[in-house]
Write a protein that binds this DNA or RNA. Sequence first.
RNA 1: CGGAGCGUAGCGCAGCCUGGUAGCGCACCUGGUUUGGGACCAGGGUGUCGGAGGUUCGAAUCCUCUCGCUCCGACCA
Length: 575
Amino acid sequence: MRYTQYLLPTLKETPADAEVISHQLMMRAGMIRKVAAGIYSYMPFGLRSIRKMEQIIREEMDRAGAIECLMPMANPAELWQESGRWEKYGKELLRFKDRKETDFCMGPTHEEVITDIVRNTVKSYKQLPLNLYQIQTKFRDEIRPRFGLMRGREFIMKDAYSFDLDDEGADAAYSKMYQAYRNIFQRCGLNFRAVEADTGAIGGSFSHEFMVLAASGEDAIVSCDTCEYAANVEKAELLYRESKTPPATAELQKVDTPGQKTIEDVAAFLKVEPRQLVKTLIIQTSEDEVLAVLLRGDRELNEIKLTNLLNVDWVLMAEDDVVKQTTGAPTGFAGPIGLKVRVIADSEVQEMADFVVGGNAVDVHYLGANLDRDFAVGRFADIRQAVGGDSCPRCADGKFESWRGIEVGHVFKLGTKYSEAMNATVLDDQGKARPLVMGCYGIGVGRTVAAAIEQNHDEYGMALPMPLAPFQVLVSMVNPKDDAIREASEQLYRQLLDLGVEVLLDDRDERPGIKFKDADLIGIPLRVTVGSRNLKEGRVELKVRAGGEMLLLSVAEAAQVVRQMVDDALLFIVK
RNA sequence: CGGAGCGUAGCGCAGCCUGGUAGCGCACCUGGUUUGGGACCAGGGUGUCGGAGGUUCGAAUCCUCUCGCUCCGACCA
């Protein structure tokens, strides 16, 4: 491709509304343009990366035995009413009517449509296992789209659905997908973790999220430094240590703590560490219960763990007036001593003695509080948020490391939720109808490309890994008005095309500075510079965008060397 | 949806408080010089000042309503 015949509108300045690096760089490098909130056009240069991502997905899905199909964006309400999600999905589901006033929605995911297809076409266990996938544009009317392609309303997603006769089959399908996902993200050259995830509202049996590690990630994850265990902090289990409470050595002592409400305030005021405090959170549940939750002062409550423990729909921090009613004091002074409500403590609290707690009265705390002697705890459980440094629950001496992650993929064992709701059954070898056991598997295509940029950039621009880069090599003719330069560049360009290398020839009549700045910005992995400085000796300069290595090559050998380097870069990542 | 903020040229912004000719930088077009890290000279045009209503002799500026967008919280690929 010749630059002068291409559309690659680079921006010198960062658009004001782009917050994260990938969004900024994709805008500046002319990969995407915004059409409306969370809705983008893929410009030619960006689309090339998207297509490469799709192709990698396609190859690995096919290799794992999945079959590609394509379902419609417009879904009839009928199917969604059948699964019950027409009512449940909420405003994220973009609904509309056709000219006959029939209800439709834009598909945010396709369990309904695929289940409908399968129930109508698959009748026998002999047709199983089956795994169908598509790469398609989804629409979710997100409350708050942001970060460019990272969280759009309209976005390209690969979604796959597996159908099996029984749980064992479904588990096998799941692990195939798990492995396919590992291959996909590995081939993209991404640094990622597959983490155990909460199954949330869908309620399936298990689930993994694939997280690309990046500082801008919206999810917090932990991974063991010794074994394979990794999990979203929402889910991360903590080692339950059966431990004896140490003996009390201090007297319970009431102290004035005027105006000291937060853990930090109280700790500083009393000249103790936050870990010597026990904080008391007053919690309300969906079952209308009010209870107290105890955590070591420096720890955070994991609301999902608590929700699961209590087997309720939701929990939340109590409103100020409920706190006042329960403890007799305004928020900030709650403590377990003398409380009338149920008390649940994080297991870690069991190991504490002589700690500080709130006094259930304005400006009052207790020093030297102790379990049993001063108050009773109904139950100890793992209810706190995992953090870096915590012990791994799966191996003897591993410790957690903490990361920020971007969720690029999710594999989910669905079970029979949809097949039962929509009556999708097959006959087994006994001639008996059995509901299909399903799994679903998603990858955010644009989000993965964005995540790759988050992970591969520097102050000058992006440096996408070879497998995702829009072009493999940029040939930059420093001065197109110089005949020798032009001829050498054209020759090299043709040779590269003949060798099947994806090459962009910068044949613009621009000053070298502009060409080099643009080259760094758009970050094509290899750059060949043809300029008078080296051409005098019959040489061109080959520069690697990501590492910065540079070598001088003769004009004659350059194309072959580039071909080889491209192959190496693609192979290295496949391993 | 709750809170905060922004809409002025393709992009980045000033002007608004205190009403009176719509501006700056970049980009763009023409000509010339220049050609290894975002050049220089000369010339050029670019706008429903987000929209609607109101106040006023006069509104980008003041008032009301509206639409759009961005950021912070609960959802998710």
